[in-house]
């Protein structure tokens, strides 16, 4: 392959290969090689992360690119167990973009940052020729302070650990798809886009023994499970009957032939904790507004012939592959 393909940006196997074979080797160093959503910086307990937002459409039920640009980066910090503090903001605007839309996006971004208690402290703005951007692209870099004694690592996972999720799967990806393709829903699906650091703070306060947090964004739960199981040298078994998926979401994805496990979320996290703490953690999560539909969805098992498995509703077991990642391009 001599050129980058669109599928390599979609969070699945193609993207993993681009990172592993091209990007990481070019830049390899101990901090980058931690391979988490953000880097634990030496010394001060600071955590740094960055994310670029190229979503299409820019406005969708449940949010817009401005809100997403705060939530996504805040969540990457939260998944490192960090309290989000500061953001930088890079705007790449296409000539011809409507002032009104820019203002709506910035207002939403400011509001979300305010609610999250993060401050935009620096920024950069570029305008590119008409036809050379897609309205607007946003990059945010986030810095936060870790609440953890020991950085999270997939190596900490142990057989028997439980996986918990804070609610329904696949809502962001479906909302974007429906908005972009004008799919005729009576009630348009709404993105779950939300900042999760508050939920994380409560979870860590009650259950400091949480082994690992990760948000199932691009590539969904399937990518998350495959990545973490591979990195931990163990396997993960999901229970299909316990997966929280709202029935309209389930029905729509079934009609479209899309596996909910591989669809992006923007307001969901997966927590790994010891079996003994799982029920306690579940109760804490369910008591939080962003965790009402939380569920225990699986467990870490001994290494099998593949990283990620699911026990189906009818009691059989099959493996879940790393998604290829081209079904829903440009979702975040």
């Amino acid at each position: 392959m001599s050129r980058i393909e669109l599928a390599q940006g979609a969070g699945g196997r193609g993207m993993q290969e681009l990172l592993d074979q091209v990007i990481r080797p070019a830049l390899s160093n101990p901090l980058l090689d931690q391979g988490h959503d953000g880097a634990y910086l030496p010394g001060q307990g600071l955590v740094m992360t960055t994310d670029s937002y190229v979503v299409s459409p820019l406005f969708f039920p449940g949010g817009n690119i401005g809100k997403l640009a705060v939530c996504g980066t805040v969540n990457d910090l939260a998944m490192c167990g960090a309290e989000p503090l500061w953001l930088s903001l890079g705007l790449i605007i296409e000539a011809g973009f409507e002032y009104d839309d820019l203002q709506k996006i910035l207002a939403s971004l400011a509001q979300t940052a305010k609610e999250a208690g993060v401050v935009v402290v620096t920024g950069d703005t570029k305008v590119v020729e008409a036809g050379k951007g897609d309205g607007i692209y946003i990059n945010t870099t986030g810095i936060g302070r870790s609440r953890l004694a020991q950085p999270f690592s997939p190596k900490a996972l142990k057989v028997g650990d439980r996986l918990l999720i804070n609610g329904g799967l696949a809502e962001h990806g479906l909302a974007i798809l429906a908005a972009r393709e004008s799919l005729p829903f009576e009630t348009p699906p709404i993105s779950d886009c939300a900042c999760l650091h508050g939920l994380v703070e409560t979870m860590l306060a009650t259950c400091p023994e949480i082994r690992l947090l990760r948000d199932p964004t691009r590539g969904g739960l399937a990518a998350l499970g495959n990545e973490l199981a591979s990195a931990s040298s163990l396997s993960i078994l999901l229970k299909e009957k316990d997966l929280p998926i709202k029935s309209p979401v389930q029905a729509a994805l079934q009609m479209l032939g899309i596996d909910p496990l591989s669809v992006a979320n923007e307001g969901k996290l997966v927590a790994f904790c010891p079996e003994a703490s799982a029920e306690k953690l579940l109760k804490v999560m369910q008591a939080h507004p962003l965790g009402r539909d939380s569920a225990i969805i699986g467990e870490v098992i001994e290494r099998q012939s593949a990283p990620l498995w699911i026990q189906t509703q009818i009691g059989t077991r099959r493996l879940v592959e790393m998604p290829l990642g081209e079904q829903l391009p440009r979702i975040c």
Binding site: A251, Q313, I314
Partner: peptide
């Protein structure tokens, strides 16, 4: 699988 569909539940599958 659609969980509300009886054709996707364990009982008929078992039988």
């Amino acid at each position: 699988m659609n969980p509300s569909d009886p054709f996707g539940t364990p009982e008929p599958v078992q039988a």
